[in-house]
């Protein structure tokens, strides 16, 4: 297997104070020049193998959606590199970057916001086909759109309707058809089921898995729901405040999580039997924010194993077993 996507040391920051006046602050009787910067993603590296589904999990605000948007090209990375098929996207010329739109597509989180309400389903699905000239004529494009809609489970006779005439699950299917319209090899799925009813979630996940086999797709799958990732992904990374804290295969992460944050996440997942989070006590301290990241481990405020070293020194990712890395000073010690 070769890798389709490699992310190296990706950093994404957003400047909150764009104009000079916003940067001025009144502090201790003086005017100082200080800029607030949101450090959404702080030097993360991972890769996705061809034909695999790679999961990126973490709580809200940990930078997983930002990572997805930067990889797909909606944000320009602050630093770091994204390599698609071995080629750095930063070094690509205009034509290559344009061609990338055909190879990499995205499925969005909110099916109620991701379809243009003023376009019919047919127009939505044929737009990428016609724009990238993947069909010789409008008829041919429509034929392809019908086939795609049929495949994702939308009856072709509904194609002339507008998005508001469909349910959330149906809309997400249309969104999937649009993403598939250019025959991509790689799909970024940004929490594709989190806005759907639980009963619909499984249907959409199964559709995504079937499509992956049929079209030998690779996925970068963003989620905050561990059970969703467990269902679909063979490898995954756990993010916390813009950094990857643990990465490994599905079995490694779920069977013997190494990082305390991963342990907390797994303990917090709702279960049918037994106590869930009650067994894991969390120190009642305030979480750091992406505006003001601590010097040491970002998780140490909430960690029950925290030591003085954790507050001052940033833990690096270390291998705990083959293909399983974790960013904790205590790894291998406890």
């Amino acid at each position: 297997m070769s890798e389709i996507l490699r992310v190296e040391n990706l950093t994404q920051q957003f400047r909150l104070d764009k104009s000079l006046l916003d940067k001025l602050h009144w502090e201790k009787g003086r005017i100082t020049l200080r800029e607030r910067v949101v450090k959404a993603v702080n030097g993360i590296s991972f890769h996705v193998e061809r034909g695999e589904a790679f999961g990126l999990v973490g709580e809200s605000g940990c930078g997983k959606s930002t990572t997805a948007r930067t990889i797909i090209g909606l944000n320009r990375p602050t630093s770091g590199d994204i390599l698609f098929d071995g080629k750095s996207t930063a070094a690509m010329d205009k034509g290559e970057r344009f061609a990338l739109h055909k190879q990499m597509q995205m499925i969005f989180q909110d099916p109620y916001a991701s379809l243009n309400p003023r376009m019919t389903v047919m127009d939505i699905v044929t737009e990428p086909i016609l724009f990238h000239k993947l069909a010789g004529s409008r008829q041919e494009a429509e034929q392809r759109a019908y086939a795609l809609l049929e495949r994702v489970g939308i009856r072709p006779e509904l194609a002339s309707r507008f998005p508001h005439q469909f349910s959330g699950g149906q809309r997400q299917r249309i969104g999937i058809a649009r993403a598939l319209a250019v025959n991509p090899q790689f799909i970024v799925a940004d929490e594709p089921v989190s806005a759907l009813d639980v009963s619909i979630q499984a249907q959409i996940l199964n559709l995504l898995m079937d499509l992956k086999e049929e079209r030998s797709l690779s996925y970068l799958f963003i989620a905050h729901d561990l059970s969703v990732v467990r269902h679909l992904c063979s490898r995954l990374a756990v993010m916390y405040l813009g950094r990857i804290v643990e990465m490994g295969s599905r079995e490694q992460i779920f069977e013997h999580p190494s990082h305390p944050y991963t342990q907390l996440l797994l303990a917090a997942a709702p279960k049918l039997t037994g106590s869930s989070i009650a067994g894991y006590e969390i120190p009642e301290k305030e979480m750091p924010t992406v505006l003001d990241l601590p010097k040491g481990c970002a998780f140490c405020n909430r960690c029950r194993y925290a030591s003085p070293q954790c507050e001052t020194e940033l833990p690096a990712l270390r291998e705990v077993e083959l293909g399983h890395v974790s960013a904790c000073h205590l790894c291998g010690k406890k």
Partner: peptide, 25 residues
């Protein structure tokens, strides 16, 4: 809105996004 992001992911140029996605809405 995410549908504008979707249009950018397709690679549509700004003038087409404005005419087909922003103005009608």
């Amino acid at each position: 809105m995410e549908y504008v992001d979707a249009a950018r992911v397709i690679g549509l140029p700004s003038h087409r996004i404005i005419l087909r996605y922003i103005l009608p809405n």
